[in-house]
Simulated scan of single mutants.
Amino acid sequence: MQTVDFHCDALSKLWEDSSASFKNDPKLDVSLERMIQGHVDLQVFAVFLSEQYGRPSFERVLAQIEVFRRRLADPGFVKPLLWKEQVQAIREGSGKDRYGLLSLEGVDGLEGNLHYVRLCYELGVRCMGITWNYANWAADGAMESRNGGFTERGRELVRLCNEIGMVLDVSHLSEAGFWELMELTSRPVIASHSNAYTICPHPRNLRDDQIRALVALDGRIGITFVPWFIRSDGQGVKPEDLLPHIEKICELGGAKHLMFGSDFDGIDRWVEGLAHPGHYPDLQELLLKYYPEDEVRGWMSGHALRFLEGNLPSKAEDKS
């Protein structure tokens, strides 16, 4: 069964280790070999700038984009996904080609310069998470205790992203920022890797009214495999523990808005038996025990691809 995964941090690991190969390096959760094993035809690759390497900068954003180009795209491991016209090719690809979509996890490295947003777009970035866990120049993150919303510069960022066709991602955004974005945006948004707060009350998860709002906007919610976002203790988490999150989102009207955003390579503990993309077929087998095949196909790829087809920019209309 074809699979789309809307979040991983493999680029950060590859940037940190210049000797690592995306082809089959066991140090990576996500590799070409494991994408093939798991029938992952599209993987979203986040540009994440860890503060352990100093203050986030645009130079480091460019460095990870270059990692994607030189070590994933140029060798032919993945094809960059840029345009809505390419989505049909993914649907019809029969596993022949793998695609990669670039995302920015937090705009900290853009340094408040909106010209850098356009440059990222020209370099292939098609999705932007506004914050990581804490405050930056645009907005507050989900772990920022004051729970503030957007700065004026952040509001300009939203308007620009809507204008050029950059998808906005609310995973990691503060609750106040989430509701402000719902008022600001003229386009659907996603939560690339977040679960249901009612099931596991972690600040990174979505409350019921947030899930309803994303559904109403025809956005998407990527169920994530971060153990402590699945169960509060984060210990001995099994794939079955994802089912209450799926049930809750479906109960709130989100059955046709679900997808997956694993956060592989961004975690150091894994769901048992779900530690890399090669395990996706096992997850599918579990889901098929409880849900109809057409619903599972939607969650594995269909809803994500439909969103991208509707919200990626068109190459025919691009004026960049």
Rank of each mutant, 00 (worst) to 15 (best):
His172Ser: 12
Ile223Thr: 09
Arg69Ala: 14
Asp209Met: 11
Trp15Asp: 09
Ala142Pro: 01
Met182Asn: 08
Leu217Glu: 14
Arg55Pro: 02
Val40Lys: 01
Gly219Leu: 04
Leu11Thr: 07
Gly266Leu: 06
Leu82Asp: 09
Glu156Phe: 12
Gln37Asn: 06
Asn136Tyr: 11
Phe68Arg: 08
Ile190Asn: 09
Lys315Trp: 14
His172Gly: 11
Leu242Ala: 06
Glu175Lys: 13
Leu217Lys: 15
Tyr280Val: 10
Met35Ser: 02
Leu214Pro: 07
Gln2Asp: 15
Asn147Cys: 05
Pro26Arg: 12
Val167Leu: 15
Val271Thr: 10
Leu104Arg: 11
Lys96Glu: 14
Leu168Glu: 09
Gly222Thr: 06
Ala46Ile: 07
Leu72Lys: 01
Leu11Tyr: 08
Arg34Asp: 01
Ser171Asn: 11
Leu283Val: 10
Arg297Lys: 15
Ala275Ile: 09
Cys120Met: 06
Ser94Glu: 15
Phe45Glu: 03
Leu160Val: 08
Glu105Ser: 07
Tyr121Trp: 11
Ser171Thr: 15
Ala304Glu: 05
Arg126Tyr: 00
Ile90Glu: 04
Pro244Leu: 05
Asp241Asn: 13
Leu114Lys: 08
Trp15Gln: 07
Gln37His: 00
Lys289Trp: 03
Ala196Val: 04
Glu85Ile: 05
Ile246Lys: 09
Asp294Phe: 10
Asp318Leu: 12
Val189Lys: 04
Leu81Phe: 08
Ser103Pro: 03
Gly253Glu: 06
Ser103Trp: 03
Asp108Trp: 01
Leu181Cys: 07
Arg55Met: 14
Arg55Phe: 09
Glu122Tyr: 01
